[in-house]
Structures are given as C-alpha cells and as structure tokens.
C-alpha cells in the first residue's frame, strides 16, 4: 500500500481575498486605435460612430479585451514558493458592462486562490489573481482572472 503525499509548497495565505487598488487608466482614442489594429477588429460597434449610435449601446463602445492590455504592476501576490519556473496558464474574462472611449478605468486586484494539482507530469501549483475593472461611475465593467502555474522542470543538459 502506498500513501500519496500532498505536494509541499509555501505561500502567503494572508494575501488571499485582500483587494488592493492597483491603478487606473484612461481609455484614450489612440490606445483604442492600436488595439483595433492589433486585433483586426472591424466591428462597427467599435469603429463606426453612426452605426454604433444606431446600435444597442447608443454610441461607440470599446472591445472589452482592451482591459487585458492595461499594465497592472505591483498588485498583490501570494509569493508562491514552488518549483523553478512559472508561466501564464490561463485567462478568464467576465464582461459586465460597456466600456466607452474616454472612460477612466480603475483596477483593483486580489489573489483569488492558490491550489495544487498533481498529474502525469508532476505537481503544479496555481496562483489565480483576480482583477476588477470599474469605470469613473463606479460600475464594474469586467472581472478577469489570470492563472499562473509554478512547477519544477528538469534541468537541461549542457
């Protein structure tokens, strides 16, 4: 009989669920233009003022994905100590409202959870950070989650 051992990892549990303001950004027209170029967006809701005015939102809106480009530095971290490498393993976005050109978006973040999974390739420790995006009226327009995975990889042979 074998006993499966729980993976050993350390993190700062006091960071879980503690929301911190991490900054704000104005949705400037030139930034929106860059986003539309990058993604090849041609949706008239984002690009055609007259068509957007006649549409469901009564004016131009901005693709929610632009929130993913905002530089969010210095946010909370659970300081996971596990393995020798970390990478971005997943991203989730819940869209709750419209973003307009010229909006000011305030971002707050917390560490949602830290958990481990053990599979074929070994143990991975996930740290999920959650960002809330509020506009200048205080409305939450989106919530996103970014998962980072920490794992041990074998050293490379020289």
């Amino acid at each position: 009989m074998t006993t499966e051992q729980a993976p050993v990892f350390e993190y700062d549990a006091s960071a879980i669920g503690v929301e911190v303001e991490v900054g704000s950004a104005e949705i400037l027209p030139d930034r929106v233009a860059q986003y539309l170029v990058a993604t090849g967006e041609t949706n008239p809701l984002y690009t055609d003022e007259a068509a957007a005015a006649a549409g469901p939102h009564g004016g131009l809106t901005v693709p929610p994905g632009i929130l993913q480009t905002l530089s969010i530095a210095g946010g909370p971290t659970a300081k996971v100590k596990f393995g020798n490498t970390a990478f971005h393993s997943g991203q989730r976005m819940e869209v709750l409202g419209q973003i307009r050109p010229g909006d000011t978006i305030h971002v707050s973040s917390d560490v949602k959870e830290v958990y481990a999974k053990t599979g074929r390739t070994g143990t991975m420790v996930f740290e999920v950070r959650r960002n809330r995006f509020r506009n200048q009226h205080g409305d939450v327009v989106a919530v996103s989650e970014q998962a980072m995975v920490h794992r041990q990889t074998a050293p490379r042979e020289a």
Binding site: T39, G55, P63, Q91, M93, V95
Partner: peptide, 27 residues
C-alpha cells in the same frame, strides 16, 4: 496569452452580432 484571449473574443463577438452579449470567455 492575453492577446490570444482577445482574438478569441473577437471571433465570438463577430459571430454573435451587434445585439448579442458576451458574458464570459476563458482560455
């Protein structure tokens, strides 16, 4: 990775049309 999420978002929002609503997307 965030760019990939945004491209996936574009594909879905193009498909649904102006009166569709994207509630969530994850990758």
């Amino acid at each position: 990775g965030a760019f990939a999420l945004c491209m996936a978002t574009r594909v879905v929002t193009d498909w649904m049309g102006a009166y569709g609503t994207l509630h969530s997307i994850d990758v």
